[in-house]
Amino acid sequence: MKKGGRKISALVVDDDRVIRVVEEKLLVRFGLETKVAKNGKEALDLFVAGNTFDFVVMDMEMPVMDGPEATRALRARGVDCMIVGVTSRGDGPEKAEFEAAGLNCCWEKPLNAQIVGTILDKLAKKLS
């Protein structure tokens, strides 16, 4: 998938390395340029250092800086890319708080090819 001649870029943010490896591979398989971060702080630092991404896959519960806090911080910096939350918490106040932090959408873990396909459709609409 490309945008104006370059690859679509994505950032995977999760504290679990098994999940990072699986999600990264999944996105690479869809032809995306993919980077990973171990927590919200690392993700934020990447943006502060000048990196940009077309979308971010953000875990909810992480040490150092969690998903809701990182999402709020990114939005406060004016980051307007698509941020997709992933959580295993199901529907509840925590998920609602996460969404309210500035997510474009939120999915239940684990991420799979079908979910990535849906995300990319949404992204294509947003970019067109």
Partner: peptide, 27 residues
């Protein structure tokens, strides 16, 4: 989800399932 891992394994990464499962065992 395990089938998803198997589908992600390809010529460029023939040991993908082995690698992920090994990380899972360690962790």
């Amino acid at each position: 989800q395990f089938s998803q891992l198997q589908m992600l394994q390809d010529e460029t990464n023939p040991d993908f399932v082995f690698e992920v499962v090994s990380l899972f065992f360690e962790d």
